[in-house]
Design a protein around this nucleic acid. Structure first.
Lengths: 203, 203, 203, 203
DNA sequence: CATGAATGAGGATTCATTCAT
DNA sequence: GATGAATGAATCCTCATTCAT
């Protein structure tokens, strides 16, 4: 038992150390970008020596990859929430203010931007991002299909896929708007988003 | 006169040299990102010694800024084209296939992504991007206003602004889709985009 | 008594631990060289934590020194064997094929090479090597003297010393040949060695 | 002409810079060994910044390789000298005091030792050493063959090869003697070497 | 104008060594 | 005794920038 406890706490400790590093990385990456953040900066933020980080990660690239992996769950979580709803499609429309607010929060969207830029030139990261994206899309396509079937609307594959992509495009495009146009009016934007989203769901 | 001529050709030469560098930078930045591209790489691509570049730009950051400035004209150019049309709003819908195709071309969108990521942490770049964006938005708001007035639709400021932002969000979000979902169906996406865009213009 | 027993077993244990480390070191040093082998590598090969090694050795240099010490016995062992023979000098000639074969085995000579290189810049190691060498030479000089006296040959000091050195030089030089000329012909080399050795013993 | 002059002096300068680095490396490698010598140490000895060295060498390993290459010529030079003699085999015997003296000079043999140790675990270096060795051996075998033919002695391949190897073994083994036995008597050793060498040449 | 040699600070990474448990 | 987490100095190498020519 004491052996088990020791082992368990060791693994727990290691896992908590990794998390410590990833949390520090989140902070540093947000501040300086993946390449602007130095291992020294990260190690300081993690409260641990630079050398020690290499007991938990093989390289800085490895940290970036783990960090990206961890961040790929955000959209997936939204999808899971959606699946739980009685009428998910209606729920999308109902919660549009919340989603817009979140999409416009620069704290939340700084890092995905960094991730996308990295994905555009680092194939390993690109693969991670594409896998996560594929998964989220599949979840949403299923939601969309069920909702449209229940309403007697067309559910052919190309339609579902493309509408899903455009919906995501809108919510991925909004953070860029926040970045370029910091003073925009959240409520009015939410109304406009509703206008664009409704026909994609129900048209 | 010879003095004037000399001066003129000097300025011309300098300007052509700057362009030479910025063209080289485009190539290198696309390949390696702003921070991955070294001055040596750029100078080689520009056919000019590394040291000499410093006669035209104060620093690498200065090149990045100039490069960003130069690239901010893309959306603005689209707006100018649009202004020339008889019925610009209808033209947006009519040309949606072309715009979608362009938005999905990764070559075209790799660099903006790099720019946005840089803007998210470099205030100087952020300012450049915001100024350019403000200008484009103003152009499009004017177009939208005229089009809607001609159709007897509401033109209150908040509506125009927010719809404009969402329209841009869609077209800025699409490239991210292409990045995350390389195999999507252009024609189907264009149809879905049309569905989302129409109510923003005419609803 | 139990105290004595404890003490004895403690010393035994410590000594066995040291041997465990030195055996591991042999393996790692052969594979990676003194400086290429890390304490982590050695500790893994020794089946013991890196930290624990420091209970038996003060430093990595200390391990190297102990390892060198342990390896200095090789030539000495050959001398002891020789002393046991009826006619040691003749035995040298008779066993020349075996000695040549051994001298050309790269496994056996990789580590001495590492040791000699280290001795050429680490005075502590140099001293160890010189002491061991002096001892072996003294043994062989005695053998040579006895053999030559029995044959009525000159036995003046300078002659004995220098011939002994040249004999050793031949057998220390052969491994370098194996290293530089991996495909050489053992039997032919043994014959040539015999040709060179005979006059040193009996000339 | 000025163009040619410029170019020439550029190449000359680069080549002199490389030499500067290799000279510094010689000094540092002799003092600290290949792996003990840091780039900082070398750069200081070369009177040039560490970074600048990388304009002339791709890596530290590249410096080591170039250094080894440069040092491989020593034996080859001895062979060339030998070829020029009227009776090279006799010349070997006549000059044996000089060769022994040189072989026993620790300054001259510290670095080859380092090279051999490196060759025993770095395949790139091993290849360099083996190529150089093959060349030197071929030169000496030719000398030996001509000398023996002139004297009506056997010249079959295996004999020539193996005697050549043993001769070299003697001269490569002597430096190790100097290292292990610093106080040996040069004149007496030379006499003993002559005793061993003669039958290899003429027996 | 134009070069590219030269700098040196800063980057990621490794590793001998220590120490709390 | 024994562990391995933790340190931090040191290493190799890169790169923006300067400057003599």
């Amino acid at each position: 038992m004491s052996f088990c406890g020791k082992k368990h706490s060791d693994q727990e400790r290691a896992s908590s150390r990794r998390k410590q590093v990833l949390d520090a990385a989140e902070c540093c990456f947000g501040r300086s970008g993946f390449h602007g953040a130095s291992m020294a900066e990260i190690s300081k933020a993690a409260g641990m020596s630079a050398g020690h980080i290499y007991n938990y990660f093989d390289s800085k690239d490895d940290i970036i990859a783990a960090f990206v992996q961890q961040n790929m769950d955000r959209v997936s979580a939204i999808m899971r929430d959606l699946e739980q709803q009685d009428d998910p499609l209606q729920a999308v429309l109902d919660a549009i203010e919340d989603h817009v607010r979140e999409a416009l929060d620069p704290c939340i969207w700084k890092l995905p931007l960094e991730i996308y830029a990295e994905a555009s030139r680092n194939p390993k990261i690109a693969q991670l991002v594409q896998q996560a994206d594929q998964h989220s899309r599949a979840q949403f396509v299923a939601i969309l299909k069920a909702g449209r079937e229940a309403r007697g609307l067309a559910t052919d594959g190309a339609i579902l896929d493309s509408r899903c992509d455009v919906l995501i495009a809108i919510f991925e495009g909004l953070p860029l708007r926040a970045l370029h146009h910091p003073s925009l009016n959240e409520a009015a934007v939410a109304a406009a988003v509703r206008l664009a989203v409704a026909p994609l769901l129900f048209g």
